Simulated scan of single mutants.
Amino acid sequence: MPETVSFGYEEVAPEEKTARVGAVFSNVARRYDIMNDAMSAGMHRLWKDRFVRRVKPRAGEDILDMAGGTGDIAFRLARSGARVTVADINPEMLEVGMGRADARGFDTLVWSEANAESLTFPDRFFDAYTIAFGIRNVTDIPAALREAHRVLRRGGRFFCLEFSTTLWPGFSEVYDFYSHRIVPKVGKLIADDEDSYRYLIESIRRFPDMPTFARMIGEAGFVRTHVEPMLGGLVAIHSGWKI
């Protein structure tokens, strides 16, 4: 790992990033889903639906939903009859997710406080690994990708939903203005937390572009890597297989 990593537009020590990201999600946990609706005008629900359709969960499969805190992806996966483990490094996010699961009657989910960079699950334990809007907050992304590869069975599949860089002419400038000028203000209004949402927007800007991240997935050992851009690449579904 390098001596410094990005925390938004800052360069900080790796251990400092881990601690500061933890504080961000502790701060926003209770309003996280409301803010997702506000920031994306509800479109995050459509992106997540499409993501889970690409995963194609099946009854009896074991699926790890990493950084799955509030349960949005896990609930969709569990409807298939798959056995879903929800893992997140942040206990406050998991607490919100467990409360939402109780309210919705999802009583078969397994909840685990876990660091994506150093999972405690055995080798070749899961049929699929999903992570949605979480990989960019990981301190050591290559380590997390290697761990994803390790815990998957042969023939297992990796799916990641993440923000990226839109390639549509003109749209990127509009989105830059909206994200940098409007989203932090919305965060202040709804969640009383402007700084956390400023970081979340900056973290999108610092995340690798689609070809670079696809290459990182391949370097972790995955084959048949694929990227499916949405909104010109503003959001992308990355995937790969373990053989």
Rank of each mutant, 00 (worst) to 15 (best):
E15G: 06
I89W: 14
G134E: 07
D102T: 13
E10H: 08
V235T: 15
D65G: 04
D62E: 14
T70Q: 08
A19G: 07
M43L: 15
M98D: 05
F158K: 12
T4Q: 11
S203H: 14
F159K: 03
G42P: 12
R157F: 05
E162Q: 06
V86N: 11
L145Y: 11
L152V: 01
P142D: 04
M93K: 09
F126W: 09
D209S: 06
G8K: 10
R58M: 04
R76W: 10
A191D: 12
N36A: 05
N36K: 09
I182Y: 14
G233K: 10
E194C: 02
A148F: 05
R206L: 02
L109T: 06
P91G: 09
K17Y: 07
E228F: 06
W111M: 00
L161R: 12
D88L: 00
T120F: 13
R215S: 13
R50P: 00
V227W: 06
E95C: 01
S118H: 14
A23C: 03
V24M: 01
G22L: 02
S196G: 10
V183N: 04
A132C: 06
V84I: 07
I135G: 02
L64P: 08
T166I: 10
D107Y: 05
L77D: 08
E228Q: 09
R153H: 07
G97I: 03
V21P: 07
Y178N: 04
E219A: 08
W241S: 13
S164G: 09
F158Y: 11
E173T: 08
G221W: 05
F163Q: 09
S196T: 15
C160H: 07
C160N: 13
G97R: 08
S26M: 11
P91L: 03
N27C: 14
A114H: 09
D107F: 10
I237P: 01
G69F: 01
K17H: 06
V84L: 03
D123W: 11
T70A: 01
P169N: 08
E202F: 05
R136T: 02
G99N: 14
R76E: 06
W241M: 14
E11V: 04
E162F: 09
E61R: 07
E194N: 12
F25P: 04
V183Y: 13
R30N: 14
E194I: 11
R124D: 15
A220W: 13
G156P: 04
